[in-house]
C-alpha cells in the first residue's frame, strides 16, 4: 500500500474542521476500514447536525465514478459525504479526467478504504492535489478511554488512600460514602450495579 501515513481524526474532530471550512469549496477524504465506513458516515452526520442543526448534508453511495457525477448534479446540499469504498482505479481515473464535473459549492468528503485511496493516489493525481491536506484516517471517538480510565482510577486511589477492593466492599456493605468521586470510581471499575442507594 502506498498511502502515506495520514493524521487521525474522530468524526467529531472532522465535523469541527468541516464547519470551519464552511463557505468554501473544499474536498477531503476520510479513510476507514470497509466495515467502519457506515459508522464513520453516521457519526460524521450526527456530529455535524449537533454543531449546527440548520446544516444541510447529503450522503451518496455511488457504485461507480460515473454515478457519482450524476449524484452530485442532483444534490444541492452544503455538505456531501460520498461513500466511495467501491471505487477502483478506473473510477478514480474517470473522476480525475472529468474533475470539473465534481465542482461543488461546499464541503465534499470522500469516505473510502485505505486500498481504494491508494488507487486514487496512483490514478488521479489532480484529484489528489485537490484533497491536499484534508485527508484523515477515521478513529473511533473515545479511542483514549482506557488510558483515561486508568489515570483517573490512579488519582482516586491516591486521593482516598484506598484500593479498588476497599471501595467495592464498602459499596456492597452499604457503607461507601455517596460523594460523586465514589460514583465515578464504581463506574470506572465496571460496578455501576452498586450505585443504587445503600448498594442495592
Amino acid at each position: 500500500m502506498n498511502v502515506p501515513s495520514v493524521p487521525s481524526a474522530s468524526a467529531a474532530e472532522l465535523a469541527l474542521r468541516s464547519i470551519a471550512l464552511r463557505g468554501t469549496a473544499v474536498y477531503g477524504a476520510y479513510l476507514a476500514a470497509s466495515g467502519e465506513i457506515d459508522t464513520a458516515i453516521e457519526e460524521l452526520d450526527e456530529e455535524l447536525e449537533a454543531l449546527d442543526r440548520s446544516i444541510q448534508s447529503a450522503t451518496v453511495r455511488p457504485r461507480t465514478g460515473e454515478q457519482l457525477i450524476a449524484d452530485l448534479a442532483a444534490t444541492s446540499a452544503e455538505f456531501v459525504f460520498v461513500d466511495a469504498r467501491l471505487f477502483v482505479a478506473l473510477d478514480w481515473g474517470l473522476l480525475d479526467r472529468r474533475r470539473s464535473s465534481l465542482a461543488h459549492a461546499g464541503v465534499l468528503i470522500l469516505i473510502t478504504t485505505f486500498s481504494s485511496f491508494d488507487e486514487l493516489m496512483q490514478s488521479a493525481p489532480n484529484l489528489a492535489s485537490w484533497l491536499g491536506a484534508q485527508v484523515f484516517a477515521y478513529v473511533r471517538d473515545g479511542a483514549g478511554v482506557e488510558v483515561a480510565r486508568a489515570r483517573r482510577l490512579d488519582a482516586l486511589r491516591t486521593w482516598a488512600s484506598k484500593s479498588d477492593a476497599d471501595i467495592i466492599h464498602a459499596a456492597e456493605d452499604g457503607t461507601l460514602p455517596r460523594d460523586p468521586e465514589f460514583a465515578e470510581w464504581l463506574v470506572l471499575l465496571g460496578r455501576g450495579d452498586l450505585l443504587g442507594p445503600r448498594g442495592s
Binding site: E13, G144, L188
Partner: peptide, 16 residues
C-alpha cells in the same frame, strides 16, 4: 477540548 471531554462507559467488557 476534544481530548479533555471524554465519555467513559462502564467497562471492562468482561465485568459488564
Amino acid at each position: 477540548i476534544h481530548q479533555l471531554v471524554q465519555l467513559l462507559p462502564e467497562l471492562p467488557q468482561q465485568i459488564a
